[in-house]
Simulated scan of single mutants.
Amino acid sequence: MFVVLDDRSTVAAGYVACFDREGVAATAVEPGEFFEWFELINDADVAVIEGFLIGSVMNKRQISARIRSRCRAPLIGLIEARALSETLDLFSLGFDDVLAKPFHVREVLARSGAIRRRMQIVDECVDIAGVRIFFDGRDPIVSGEVLPLPRRERRILECLVLSRNTRITKTQIFNRVYGIFNDEIHENVIESHISRLRKRLKQRLGYDPIDSQRFLGYRLKDFAGEDATRHAAELATSLTQGPDASISSNIIRDEENIDGALRSNDYQRIGHVCPI
């Protein structure tokens, strides 16, 4: 989720609409209410923020200092036109990058991704479970070919990769994909998105790479493999040492590859430039 700060509410709403058309969650916060808002949200919600876009605001220095005291998310300044003096001023205030209008949302994603890589927060791309995932808006490469994904499903796949060392809950995925203040959509929509994502990946890979456990959340099976391998080894040992030693190892493998019901859906991807 990206946070937009601009004294002009219409302009801020325009930025948010551009992000929404690309399937990226964004929210506009009134600059005068930012400090109170930033104090009220918890650390889990702060971790969801992928970047701050600061437009026309009066107290840029105080805002940038407060953000840096709590969050490492990219801080990007938005200016009306290219101007060396204004650009240098923003960099001196601790901004990570500066963008002049017009710009595309995918450029914001690419620049914020580059900033996070420099901070060693995220890699340029990740190869996992037979899938190469990018973090700049590009579709993943599955089995050597590009797999076009709807915007939300691509974002969910990115969330699973970013949280690949642990499970991520449905609520956490919803907050990343739809934003922490979206009360118009129920978070159960994530289950439908993941179901369709599973089907698309399984058609290419031949297996379901997403592991899920009720109340615990989701993770990619490539990183859940250690637990599965340990369980299979323990089960194989018990079978070879017990009265059922003749049971085929195929039964063990079958118990490790249970797939849920899957559904499909089609979306259209729309690209827009933010000229506001």
Rank of each mutant, 00 (worst) to 15 (best):
A81Q: 13
G217E: 10
E153Q: 15
S112F: 10
G179D: 00
R61N: 08
R269Y: 04
E86G: 00
V4T: 08
L197R: 00
R230Q: 09
P102I: 11
E226L: 10
G94V: 09
L220A: 10
I67D: 03
Q241V: 12
F35Q: 07
F95G: 01
L5N: 04
S143E: 06
G23V: 14
K60A: 15
S85A: 12
E184H: 14
R176M: 02
R204W: 10
Q268Y: 05
S195C: 11
G137A: 03
K202R: 15
L84C: 05
G77I: 06
H272F: 10
R164N: 01
F35E: 09
A114L: 03
D266P: 02
I54D: 04
G206R: 07
E86Y: 00
L239G: 01
T229V: 08
F34H: 07
V48W: 01
G271A: 11
D183V: 06
S163C: 08
A26Y: 07
E80H: 09
L5C: 08
F134R: 04
E36A: 09
A261G: 06
Q268C: 04
S69D: 11
G242A: 09
N42H: 07
G77T: 04
F2R: 12
A233T: 00
L53R: 00
E145M: 11
T169D: 10
R72A: 11
H104E: 14
P243M: 03
C71Y: 07
I115T: 13
L84D: 09
I141K: 06
E191S: 15
V4A: 03
T169K: 12
R151F: 02
L78N: 13
A25H: 01
R111I: 13
R117W: 01
P140G: 12
I194H: 04
I79Y: 03
G94K: 06
L84W: 10
D183A: 11
V126M: 14
V273I: 03
G32V: 02
A100C: 08
